[in-house]
């Protein structure tokens, strides 16, 4: 499989009020054509910053990003334009992603004009993308304004806007969190179909492991800016290795009466002042922490079955 995007050792450091905050540390991630990778974690774990770096909406302070074989880490301005057409963000909130004064037709034509698609091609491209997001017949939608559409319909337009430039990569940050339950499935199914039929590489950012399980073959779990576990999604959810992943999986409520209601295997709450210096960032909340966890930062090490974990537990070394 050819890698569409490959990020190595990405880092993002912010300096504020005399403090240095490592929002993202040493994140590596490759996504092949037709593959969907999830990044899961709680607010503040760095998943959104990572996604924004992959799209070059945020400059990394460390590492490099290779997109379709070209290093784009330091590209700027006009030199980024071809990349912008080929790597698209699906916005989270459909209610403010579209200009309320633009018709749907204009909302879809705008990215085409921005990326220099000849006018003669616009109508055909718009028709094709409306078919893809199942807003048909397109004539009954294109002259409407956003306020005339429901949340689910708007999210279809948002998805159409991301697909119309012909991207190879789409990044979706909580793509259905603003939508009602009954229409979420429709959007997730469209995203899956678009990826399969167009062979897109996809990155999903979410706090919702159930959603990630539905759409992603592979998943990275982030905690305080770093990847703590990685692997095929189903395997990772059913057999989590990292104590944080275990707590995260156990915390997800399931829509069944019979379910595990035992106290979560995690201590305390996410601290607003992350631990600094050596040692595991999760150790103060970990029910299994031992001496080594306070002195040595566990590296992300490879296990069998395409699994990786950053934890000293079970480490033979």
């Amino acid at each position: 499989m050819s890698q569409v995007i490959s990020a190595q050792n990405l880092g993002k450091t912010f300096h504020a009020h005399g403090r240095t905050v490592h929002a993202v540390r040493d994140v590596s991630l490759s996504v092949a054509a037709g593959e969907a990778v999830g990044i899961v974690g709680e607010s503040g774990c760095g998943k959104t910053t990572t996604a924004r770096m992959l799209l070059r909406l945020e400059d990394p302070t460390a590492g490099r990003i290779v997109f379709e074989g070209e290093d784009i880490t330091h590209r700027r301005g006009a030199a980024l334009l071809p990349f912008r057409a080929r790597a698209q963000l699906v916005f989270q909130n459909p209610f403010d992603a579209l200009n309320p004064r633009f018709t749907i037709r204009r909302a879809l034509a705008e990215p085409l004009a921005n990326f220099g698609v000849p006018r003669a091609e616009h109508a055909g491209r718009i028709e094709a993308v409306m078919q893809r997001v199942r807003l048909t017949p397109s004539a009954s939608w294109l002259d409407r304004h956003p306020h005339e559409l429901s949340g689910g319909q708007l999210q279809r337009v948002v998805l159409a806007r991301a697909l119309i430039p012909g991207p190879r990569l789409i990044v979706a940050d909580e793509p259905v969190s603003m939508l009602d339950v009954s229409v979420r499935a429709g959007i997730l199914n469209l995203l899956r179909a678009a990826r399969d039929e167009l062979g897109l590489a996809a990155v999903y950012i979410s706090h919702d492991l159930a959603l990630i399980r539905y759409v992603c073959e592979r998943t990275l779990v982030m905690y305080l800016g770093a990847v703590v576990e990685e692997g095929p999604t189903v395997d990772l959810i059913e057999r989590p290795h990292h104590p944080y992943t275990r707590a995260l999986v156990a915390a997800v409520p399931v829509p069944r009466i019979e379910q595990d209601r035992a106290p979560l295997p995690i201590k305390g709450a996410l601290s607003d002042a992350p631990l600094v210096g050596p040692g595991c960032a999760f150790r103060d909340r970990c029910p299994a922490a031992f001496g080594r966890c306070a002195v040595e930062t566990p590296p992300l090490r490879e296990l069998s079955g395409r699994r990786k974990v950053a934890c000293h537990l079970g480490d033979p070394a």
Binding site: S182, R184, A185, A210, R213, P255
Partner: peptide, 17 residues
């Protein structure tokens, strides 16, 4: 509603909106 959203321990069969 019961078929419309994913279950973290469920299969990957298609959700039905």
């Amino acid at each position: 509603l019961t078929h419309a959203f994913p279950d973290v321990h469920g299969g990957t069969s298609a959700l039905v909106p």
